[in-house]
């Protein structure tokens, strides 16, 4: 017998990688996601790409949001994506990047598999809407 008792909730990892100590944006986003009814796991500061991958795999998140304001996105984001691929977790995880990313780098990140880049001043509603619409069907 299989009753339909399903309770789904979008799970997000909000991740800070590398030496970047700017955490206001990450906190703001984490809180906004929580208020939108998502379950948020915040990585804390100064995580290595490996740790982010470990957390994403174990927590089986639908969404990884990497917050980078240090300018190191071009080296750190690919490492996270590689790690996800290693665990077969790349394809059905929505990958977002937020923070300070110059326009000319955005295309490259998207080629790698980042779904969207959210810069300073993006509205929360927009971001949450994007997650709701693009969170993977599992």
């Amino acid at each position: 017998m299989s009753q339909s008792q399903e309770e789904r909730s979008i799970r997000c990892l909000v991740a800070k990688v590398g030496l970047d100590g700017h955490d206001r944006g990450a906190h703001v986003i984490a809180r906004a996601f929580r208020d939108a009814g998502f379950e948020v796991i915040y990585s804390g500061l100064h995580k290595a790409p490996d740790e982010i991958v470990q957390a994403a795999v174990q927590e089986d998140v639908d969404v990884i949001g990497i917050s980078i304001l240090s300018g190191a996105h071009n080296t750190l984001v690919p490492k996270v994506i590689e790690g996800l691929k290693e665990y077969d977790a790349f394809e059905d995880t929505l990958i977002l990047v937020g923070g300070v990313v110059p326009d000319e780098d955005k295309a490259h990140l998207k080629e790698l598999g980042v779904a969207e880049v959210f810069g300073p001043g993006t509205s929360m509603e927009q971001t949450i809407e994007f997650v709701r619409e693009n969170a993977p069907e599992r």
Partner: peptide
Amino acid sequence: YTGGAVLGDRIRMASNVGDMDVFFRS
């Protein structure tokens, strides 16, 4: 109210970084 949550326990898992033989689930 919203059913949402910030699951904060994982943040303390500092001694086992990158060690998949510690499987932590929030």
